[in-house]
């Protein structure tokens, strides 16, 4: 269809405007993190400081507990992502390939877990985990995050399995493969992109989780990045440069995984259509 020149100009301008809106806060985060302390207040609202430095990053990496928080978050998010992906692959495969008694109920149950406010579980889960020694522990966080993320990941994996024709498995069986061999040699390699996407989604979710980490973790030893950053905000006289440098560090893994899953966003969102 033909579009007028004016319409095209308007279209490009609108896109530019939205790009600015989307990227400016991130730009600002980076800008403050590289502004030296002596310019922080005098050039507070300049778009770019007259001099940049990485002193905040150096300080955060060398003299703070952030490397520990970073490590804790990495352990929790990676373990959660791996375990969830394994469990969700199994369950998603069952939902995709088998018609079995109770299937509709299980799907409904999983959908239900996506609807009720998770915040109402904060208190009971704390009470349950305390006698087990799972508060203040990364293991406890991994267990909780895994359960929270399994339903969505299952729907996501199911949608990827649904995309693989059943005939491929049948052909493999006729070629002489057992069910397990067909799964490992035919289905799994074809699902690799889906597995990568699921890993990415779950990693990002576990990396970002705040409320349960706040409730279940006290003290630095098992603090994840969000908990550490937030206690940093309330504890010390505000050192914006350092906080924002820490913020940029927290952004890096999330952005890396975003690049990984970017192509599958649409599929992921329409599969679950329930979770942000």
């Amino acid at each position: 269809m033909r579009v007028s020149f004016l319409g095209t100009v308007f279209h490009r301008l609108a896109i530019l405007a939205y790009l600015l809106f989307a990227l400016f806060p991130l730009f600002w985060l980076v800008k403050v993190s590289v502004t030296p302390n002596d310019l922080l207040y005098s050039e507070g609202i300049r778009l770019w400081p007259s001099r940049t430095s990485f002193e905040h990053f150096r300080f955060v990496l060398e003299n703070s507990a952030f490397p520990l928080f970073f490590r804790n978050s990495l352990i929790v998010a990676t373990s959660t992502a791996v375990i969830v992906t394994v469990l969700a692959s199994l369950a998603g495969y069952a939902f995709s390939r088998f018609a079995f008694r109770g299937r509709a109920w299980l799907v409904a149950l999983m959908l239900l877990t996506q609807m009720f406010p998770l915040v109402m579980l904060v208190a009971p889960i704390f009470k349950m985990l305390t006698p087990l020694g799972l508060t203040n522990s990364l293991t406890g966080l991994v267990i909780v995050y895994t359960a929270f993320n399994v339903p969505f990941a299952t729907f996501l994996m199911q949608s990827f399995f649904d995309g693989i024709p059943k005939e491929l498995e049948e052909a493999a069986k006729i070629d002489g493969a057992t069910q397990f061999m067909a799964f490992r040699q035919i289905i799994l390699p074809l699902t690799l992109p889906g597995i990568a996407a699921t890993l990415g989604f779950v990693f990002t979710a576990a990396w970002s989780e705040l409320l349960f980490a706040l409730m279940l973790i006290s003290g630095n030893a098992a603090a994840t990045f969000p908990v550490g950053l937030l206690s940093f905000v309330s504890k010390f006289s505000v050192d914006f440069g350092q906080m924002m440098a820490a913020g940029v560090l927290a952004l890096i893994p999330a952005c890396l995984f975003f690049l990984l899953i970017q192509r599958y966003l649409v599929q992921g969102l329409t599969a679950g259509a329930v979770k942000g």
Partner: peptide
């Protein structure tokens, strides 16, 4: 990819960053 990027930013960081802004 760029306009969808905010969605990947962890929510605690989103909150802090806007509070700073």
């Amino acid at each position: 990819a760029l306009v969808f990027l905010p969605w990947a930013v962890p929510t605690f960081l989103t909150g802090l960053n806007w509070a700073w802004m």
